[in-house]
């Protein structure tokens, strides 16, 4: 997917004869027909997604926008209340708490996760024997990380008589329950997210493979050490991939739900320290029956993620380097 060498399938353009010949008009027609068919194929392949969007997602999406301006309760009715849901957020301490928790989680765990992924990708890129096995092993957490089973395992690991405390015990450190202490509970969730570094790692690996070895050879002949090579060759050439991973992981992290839901027992325990934004939305909608308010919060989340992604793209001009430009 990161193979920039792939040519777009419009090969006809290159075969275009240098000057018009009698048959050119016919060839042109055939080409247009061909292109239409191409487009048709593309649209057909996209259709399931579009149909899904229109039939399944679009309706609820628009409905939730409307409901965000009402006091809708799933068991009662909906009354138009204008912007009240939106203004209410500004003096809802739990909303602020949920937003803060999520922001800490995102801005701490994503950079750590990417750094970890890059570091491991570089180790694996050195031609370790059995690379395929390592790659799969390290990729596994990405597949499992957001599952309920792993969240339950995490509870056990960071619990009072969990593995982590056994490990600390080796060094004579007396542990505590890390998931039940409001000061450390969010930390265990951050560690869990960092642990799922597999998918960015695989993408980094693919990226590293694309950097021509000749660059490194030239650099080492010029006397550049490993560190210098990393900062002057590897990092700049990887920036598009770092950018891609960053955008993707930020969006993902903002939407985290399962882990916090399972680890906290669904209510942000202890003392709201693991109350994630999405969990607060869910609780307001389905536990408190304040679906209107929940819809408004969901739309604010959309705005936050959209803004963040837009800023990301704008900023990318200043640090992302595309070698083929």
């Amino acid at each position: 997917m990161t193979d920039t060498q792939v040519r777009p399938p419009v090969a006809g353009a290159q075969k275009r004869p240098p000057e018009p010949r009698p048959g050119a008009v016919r060839a042109d027609k055939a080409r247009k027909k061909r292109r239409r068919k191409e487009a048709l194929t593309a649209h057909l392949f996209l259709a399931p997604w579009f149909i899904g969007l229109l039939c399944i997602t679009a309706g609820p999406l628009l409905a939730s926008l409307y409901l965000s301006f009402t006091d809708y309760s799933p068991i009662g009715g909906a009354h138009w209340i204008g912007l009240e849901n939106y203004t209410r957020m500004t003096d809802d301490p739990r909303f602020v708490k949920a937003l803060t928790n999520t922001a800490i989680y995102v801005f701490v765990s994503v950079p750590l996760q990417l750094a970890f992924a890059l570091a491991l990708a570089m180790v694996l890129d050195r031609g370790v024997r059995g690379l395929a096995i390592y790659r799969s092993v390290y990729y596994l957490p990405s597949l499992l990380g957001s599952s309920v089973a792993i969240a339950i395992l995490w509870r056990k690991m960071f619990g009072d008589d969990g593995l982590f405390n056994d490990f600390l015990g080796i060094f004579g450190v007396e542990g505590q329950s890390w998931i039940a202490d409001p000061d450390t509970a969010l930390g265990t969730l951050i560690v869990l997210n960092v642990w799922t570094f597999g998918s960015p790692m695989v993408i980094f690996l693919a990226g590293l493979r694309q950097i021509p070895p000749s660059y490194y050879e030239a650099a080492s002949i010029d006397g550049a050490g490993k560190v210098r090579q990393f900062f002057s060759i590897t990092l700049p050439l990887l920036t598009p991939i770092i950018f891609f991973n960053l955008v993707l992981q930020l969006i993902n992290a903002f939407q985290s739900f399962t882990q916090a839901f399972v680890i906290s027992g669904g209510n942000g325990s202890p003392a709201d320290s693991t109350l994630f934004y999405t969990m607060y939305v869910y609780n307001k909608g389905f536990t408190s029956f304040e679906m209107g308010y929940a819809s408004a919060m969901a739309w604010v989340l959309v705005l936050i993620i959209a803004t963040l992604t837009a800023v990301n793209f704008l900023m990318s001009k200043y640090w992302v380097f595309y070698s083929d430009k």
């Binding site: 191409e38 194929t41 057909l44 399931p48």
Partner: peptide, 24 residues
């Protein structure tokens, strides 16, 4: 990309149809 166009449109149609029918 042109090697087997005919055989590409039909699977696409088929897949689309099946998905639209079962899920959407």
């Amino acid at each position: 990309p042109y090697s087997s166009r005919r055989s590409r449109v039909w699977p696409a149609l088929l897949v689309t149809g099946a998905l639209a029918f079962t899920a959407a």
